[in-house]
Design a protein around this nucleic acid. Structure first.
Lengths: 340, 340
DNA sequence: AATCGCATTCAAACCGCTTTGAACGCCTCA
DNA sequence: TGAGGCGTTCAAAGCGGTTTGAATGCGATT
């Protein structure tokens, strides 16, 4: 059942039927209802392919997922972010397009997206320091929203981000208030923008209390369980080990805990741990009682907000770049306690 | 730059240019090269929207991701599966379309996909016992490949699956060989097909050695860290606790380990643990030395194979349903040892 | 009665590609 | 010499919608 057929059944022109269904004002209300009823009766769904061609809109949003060529790691927050964004897209009749590309193929992927016109906008994941993708998308003229920010970008761009600096500053202050002085930081790789901001928050808090930064306590690695474990072990092996550790993710924290318990110590008593919790659906930080004390911010919610923002830009509801800074909560769990 | 323009530049008809670029035989080789050169020079990319409309093909594959309405859990294996499948799609010029829907909205999602013609085929995730989606897709006539199988389905359908039964049977046998007699099973929810098969493997192995099944040792829950922890605690609290446990996922195993170490016991010495390892990129089971003894099978590879299969079906290279059963390796790690 | 404005409807062009059926030039063969 | 066949190219008709510009009918205004 297509438009022409439906029009014939109704003894109307395709023009009128199209307008009736799309809510144009120049259609008689009685006619509109007749059309709507027939559309329902014959289960008429306009062909998306035709709409796209005719309107020049793609009715789709792209997510380019870079896969690190060396480690083949897919960012684990990705599934939850997508789940949040996807909700918004389907609610608005947009499709979500995923492009999985090796991280050295991203530029080509974006250029193709543009020249083939398969999407109306994109979400940029995992922004880095001076991220080259921002000027690229700017130049290509594709509407985009960054999940995170990019220190050093000169362009104005839209973003949704967690206040990483503030989150890690507060976490550090919390540990300082508990009496800790030797606080370690297990950060993500520091070409990632969020990692830079987290370190800054950590450093600010220490410096404000007059505590010197100790490079032996500051590490920057991929945020995996095994890295957490390895770094945890090496921290504990220091001549003067830290009494508290900040870890950049739940998974890293779990590796850290493994190192701590492997050394016969107890988290929260012998050593305090605070993690950042993205509230991943399959990796909850405890049910009622949080396992880890954590800075918490829902990545799924970030996905929703970013998608909302992008659609507003695409449909012209938003003018100019939008920005949204989400604050992380500090959740007190069982992994922190006063300095032993 | 579109086809008409390019044709004009070349002083050819759009017909010939189109044919030249698409490899039709009735084009003079000299002409073809002239066309190819011009296409490159002017960076001509055919408009996907137009191709789709003209050919009636969507050049896209859909993945409908159900989000459990109660718990809002997105299956954590999902990101890696997608990464594998996505590789294949982009290599073949197909788009990947994601639909995130509440799990009670799946049927409508598939019907829409069909009636709007946005995809040429779909991958079905997380099949259940007597999964209603299989007859649905069969009826709709959308080519599809199931990641997993559905016990009870009467239709013939294509699938890619891990030999879950055999994997868990071997794991159980391995524990039996180590002298264990009280072996617990922390399984996924048993309306999921894979969980049923895993239990069957476990039961077969025990029964073959004349060991009675003990319901107190068999649990079926969502495969989260917290569930693993909770179930682990309750197992350890039994009057006669198990000396070995099989856990259905890495994450569940991590919760289990937390329970074990929380009770002051040591994994591999006091109690043996075997997990199933999907080789998730961000949750590696150790680097060189595996943390857990595990049945291992790459979910990313499964994604690749499923995508390959689906594309073969879509392009008509495959006739009739295809089936692919992947065997899981048994990896010996540090979490197992002889019965204490 | 003629003019105008308004509400409603329609025919036809268009989006950018594919594909059908026809045409053209040239060579071969009867 | 003319018919037939082959290799190559093209005009035009799709695909299924949207959108422009024109047409129609009718009541109100002058």
């Amino acid at each position: 059942m297509n438009l022409k057929e439906l029009a014939r059944k109704l003894d109307l022109s395709p023009t009128t039927v199209s307008r009736a269904l799309n809510g144009y004002p120049e259609v008689n209300e009685a006619t509109r209802e007749r059309v709507a009823a027939a559309a329902r009766r014959y289960n008429y769904k306009p062909n998306t392919r035709a709409i796209r061609l005719a309107t020049g809109r793609a009715l789709a949003v792209g997510h380019v997922i870079p896969v690190a060529t060396q480690h083949e790691i897919v960012n684990p927050i990705f599934a939850d972010f997508i789940a949040g964004a996807g909700e918004i897209y389907s609610r608005n009749g947009y499709d979500m397009l995923l492009s999985v590309v090796a991280d050295d193929g991203e530029e080509r992927a974006y250029r193709e997206l543009k020249s083939r016109g398969t999407v109306d906008g994109v979400i940029l994941h995992g922004p880095r320091l001076d991220d080259p993708r921002i000027p690229l998308l700017d130049e290509l003229g594709i509407p985009f929203v960054v999940h995170g920010r990019s220190t050093g970008a000169v362009q104005h761009y839209s973003w949704v981000d967690v206040n990483n600096r503030r989150a890690f500053q507060r976490a550090t202050e919390f540990l300082l208030d508990l009496g800790h002085r030797r606080i370690a930081l297990l950060n993500g790789l520091e070409f990632m923008d969020f990692a830079i901001r987290r370190r800054r928050g950590y450093e600010d808090a220490l410096t404000a209390r007059g505590i010197a930064l100790d490079p032996a306590l500051m590490h920057s690695e991929e945020m995996t369980e095994t890295a957490g474990h390895r770094l945890g072990q090496s921290l504990l092996a220091l001549p003067e080990p830290p009494t508290a550790v900040l870890a950049s993710s739940m998974i890293m924290g779990m590796g850290l805990r493994r190192a701590i318990e492997g050394a016969g110590l107890r988290m929260g008593r012998d050593i305090s741990v605070i993690i950042h919790d993205d509230e991943l659906s399959y990796l909850r930080n405890g049910d009622e009682v949080p396992i880890f004390t954590a800075t918490r911010s829902s990545v799924r919610e970030a996905g929703r907000r970013a998608a909302d923002m992008l659609l507003a830009m695409i449909t012209g509801k938003a003018i100019g770049p939008c920005e949204l800074l989400l604050e992380a909560e500090l959740i007190i769990g069982q992994s922190t306690g006063p300095r032993p």
